[in-house]
Computed example of a mutant assay.
Amino acid sequence: MRPPTPSPRPPGRLLAPLLASVLLAAQPLGTAIATPDAHTHADREKTTPDRRIVMTVDDLPWVQLPGISTAQALPGHRRLVAAIKRAGIPAIGFVNEGKLEHDGKLQADRLAMLSDWLDAGATLGNHTYAHADLHAVGLPAYQDDILRGERQLRPLLQAREQQPHWFRHPYLRAGRSAQDKAALERFLSEHDYRIAPVTVDNSDWIWAGAYLHATDAKDAGKLKARLRRDYIAYMGAKIDYYEQQSIDLLGYNLPQIWLIHANALNADTYADLVAMVQKRGYRFIGLDEAMRDPAYRRADAYTGPAGPSWIHRWAIGEKKPRSFFGDEPEVPAWVMTLADLESE
C-alpha cells in the first residue's frame, strides 16, 4: 500500500548497492595478509546477507466467511492448512471471531477450523471480532471489538497452554492521532497484546478476487494457472521492493513481516510462495524473533487514512521525499479488470 498522495513513479531504481568492501589497510611488518583460501566458513557466513521473514495470515478462519457456508469454505481451508503443515515453517494466523458465527450463534465446525491451524503447528492472534475499522468506529468501539475477538480464541489457546499474544489491525489502520495510537497501545499492553506490524504489504486480496472470478471463465484452468504464476512473480517483486526500501531507510534489511490472507489463491500457491522466498535466500522465523530487531522499536508516526507498510510509516515520520516511495510493484491491469476493480 502506498502513501496517500503518491507522486509519479521515478525511473527504475538501482538494485541494492554492494555492501561488502575490501579493507587494504597497511599491515605491520610480519603480519600476514589473509588470502581467500585462508578464510574460514564462519568468515564467509558473515558476508552473507541474513534474510529473515515472518509468514502472517489474516482473516481466519476463512476470508469469505460468514458470507458463504462452512461447507463452501472447508475445501480451501483444508488445502491451506495442509500446505502450512507440509511447509513446516513458522506461521501465525489472525482471527476474526465474527466469522465463527452464523446468525449470531457460534458454529462448532468453524471453531474446529481454528484447531486445524494449531494442529498444523501455526499460532493464532487477535484480528478483532468484526474486522473493525478503527478510523470508522472510533477507539472505544474498537477496543470492545478486540475483547469480543478473544472470547473463543483465549480459551482455545489456554487449552493448549498458550495465550493470545499478538494483535493485528484490520486494514492496517492504526489511528488518526498520536493520542489514539498511544491509548490503543496502552489498552493492548493491559491485555497482554503486542501489535503485529506488516512490512511486506501487498494487494493479494485483489489477486484472490480475480482468482474467484476466473472459476467461471471459459478457459478457467488456463486462466487460474496464469494467475498463480503471475501472482508468485508479483509477490517476489514486492519482497524485493521492501528489502530495498529497508536498506534505503535503515541501512540493512530488517526481518520482514509478510501479510497474506486465508483465501483460495493462497491455499493453492502457499508451497510455491514459500519456495520462491526461500530461493531468494530468506529463512522463515517466528514473529517473536523478528520483533527483537531494534527497527521495530521505532515510533509509528503515521496518522493518515491508509494502512501502509511499517517501513513506509517510519519513512513518512522521517519526512522522506515522495520519490522514496516510488517504483512499488502494482497489480497488472488485466488482473484488476478480472477482479472488477479500478484501483488498488
Rank of each mutant, 00 (worst) to 15 (best):
K85I: 07
H169D: 11
H102A: 15
G88T: 13
Q143M: 07
D133G: 11
D192K: 11
L139T: 07
K222Q: 01
T215L: 09
R86W: 02
A87M: 08
K181I: 05
I146K: 03
S177L: 01
D133E: 15
H135S: 10
T128N: 10
I195D: 07
D133S: 15
P90S: 04
V198Y: 02
S115K: 12
S203N: 14
Q163V: 10
L139D: 03
P90Q: 03
P197D: 03
R173G: 08
K224Q: 15
G121W: 00
K181D: 01
A130P: 00
Y211E: 11
V81K: 07
R148S: 11
L212F: 01
Q152Y: 10
D180C: 06
D119R: 13
P140E: 15
A130R: 00
A159T: 05
W205H: 04
W166D: 11
R151I: 06
F167D: 01
V137G: 01
H102V: 11
A122C: 15
P155C: 07
E150G: 05
I89G: 05
H102C: 12
G98N: 11
R86C: 03
K181H: 05
L114R: 01
S203W: 11
E150I: 04
G209W: 00
A112Y: 05
Q143R: 02
A210W: 01
K99Y: 09
A130E: 09
A120E: 11
A122I: 08
P155R: 09
N202T: 04
S177I: 03
L124C: 08
L157W: 07
A196Y: 00
A132K: 01
L157G: 06
L100E: 06
I92P: 05
A210Q: 09
V95F: 15
G125V: 08
D180W: 00
A183W: 03
D133T: 09
K99M: 13
P90T: 02
D216R: 13
V81G: 11
S203H: 14
D144C: 15
D116M: 12
R176D: 10
D109V: 10
K99P: 04
S189D: 10
W166L: 13
R154E: 15
Q179R: 12
Q158F: 07
I206A: 01
F187A: 10
G175E: 12
